[in-house]
C-alpha cells in the first residue's frame, strides 16, 4: 500500500513540468526515504535525479519499496487538472497496475480522482558517486534561465568559464558571438540575488544549450540554482526544493575541437 499526501500540490505540478520535456517514461521509486526518480533523456546525454523526502509529505505511507513506471507527459496532463493550491494524494495498492491521483481543493468541498495506468519500464540506473567539484557557482535561477534563453538565440553551445571573479557564458553562431559575465556579488541584504563562487580551480567546459534550456523548466521550483563543474565530468545543475529535496540535472560536456 502506498499513500503519499502532499499539501503543496502545486509543487508536484512544477516537478513534472521540469522533467516531462527531457524524459518520456521513467520509474518513480518509493521507499521509506522518499519519492525519487532517476532517468536519462532518450539520447543518453543528460540525466535527471529527483528526490522528494518523506518528511516533506503531510502523510507518507510506503509499506515496501516499489518502483512505478509512468509516462511523464500523461502524469503532467493529469496533474494539470489539479489547482495550484490543491492537496494532492498519490495512492496505489500492492501489485496494482494503476496509480490514483486525488486532488482536494483548499476548502475541501471538491475532491477529484484521476487513475493512471502504470507501465513496465526497463530502465538503467547509474551510480553517481559524490564528487568534489572544481568550481561551484550559485546564482539566481531566473538569471541563469534568462542567460540560457538569450544565448540559444545566437548559438547552439555555450562555453561556461569559472574564475575567482565570476562566471562567463559565451556562444557563437552564424550571426556573431555573445559573452555574458556574471561577477561574484558580496551583498548580504538579498542573498537570493547573489552570485556566489566557490572555486578550487578554474574550469571551462562546453555544453549544448538545448539541454540547459530544458533544465531551466525547473526555475519555478527554486530562487537559486547551483552549477557544479569539474574538467572531464558532467556538470550538475541543482534546484533545491525547500523542505522536500532537489531536482538535479547532469549533463555531459562537449569536446571542443
Amino acid at each position: 500500500m502506498l499513500e503519499l499526501r502532499l499539501l503543496q500540490g502545486g509543487l508536484l505540478k512544477k516537478v513534472l513540468e521540469a522533467m516531462k520535456d527531457l524524459v518520456n517514461d521513467a520509474n518513480f521509486d518509493c521507499s521509506p526515504t522518499g519519492f525519487s526518480l532517476q532517468a536519462m533523456d532518450s539520447s543518453h546525454v543528460a540525466l535527471v535525479s529527483l528526490l522528494l523526502r518523506s518528511e516533506g509529505f503531510e502523510h507518507y505511507r510506503c509499506d515496501r519499496n516499489v518502483s512505478m513506471g509512468m509516462n511523464l507527459n500523461n502524469m503532467a496532463k493529469m496533474l494539470r487538472c489539479a489547482g495550484n493550491d490543491d492537496i494532492v494524494t498519490l495512492k496505489a495498492d500492492d501489485g496494482s497496475d494503476c496509480i490514483t491521483f486525488m486532488f482536494e481543493n483548499p476548502s475541501q468541498d471538491k475532491i477529484a480522482d484521476f487513475e493512471m495506468k502504470l507501465m513496465d519500464i526497463d530502465s538503467e540506473h547509474l551510480g553517481i558517486p559524490d564528487a568534489e567539484y572544481q568550481s561551484i557557482v550559485r546564482m539566481p535561477a531566473a538569471e541563469f534561465a534568462r542567460i540560457c534563453r538569450d544565448l540559444s538565440t545566437i548559438g547552439d553551445t555555450v562555453l561556461i568559464s569559472v574564475s575567482k571573479e565570476g562566471v562567463q557564458f559565451s556562444t557563437r553562431g552564424d550571426m556573431g558571438t555573445a559573452n555574458i559575465v556574471c561577477r561574484r556579488t558580496t551583498t548580504v541584504d538579498k542573498p537570493e540575488e547573489d552570485v556566489i563562487i566557490e572555486m578550487e580551480e578554474p574550469v571551462s567546459l562546453t555544453f549544448a544549450l538545448r539541454y540547459l534550456n530544458s533544465f531551466t523548466k525547473a526555475t519555478p521550483l527554486a530562487t537559486q540554482v547551483t552549477i557544479s563543474m569539474s574538467s572531464d565530468l558532467p556538470m550538475v545543475i541543482e534546484y533545491r526544493i525547500e523542505g522536500m529535496g532537489y531536482i538535479r540535472y547532469y549533463l555531459a560536456p562537449k569536446i571542443d575541437e
Binding site: 536519462m40 546525454v45 543528460a46 538503467e124 547509474l126 558517486p129 562537449k254
Partner: peptide, 14 residues
C-alpha cells in the same frame, strides 16, 4: 564541430 559525450560513459551502470 563539437562532439557530444554520452553521460553513461561517466557513471557505472548499477
Amino acid at each position: 564541430p563539437n562532439e557530444q559525450f554520452n553521460i553513461s560513459l561517466f557513471y557505472a551502470d548499477l
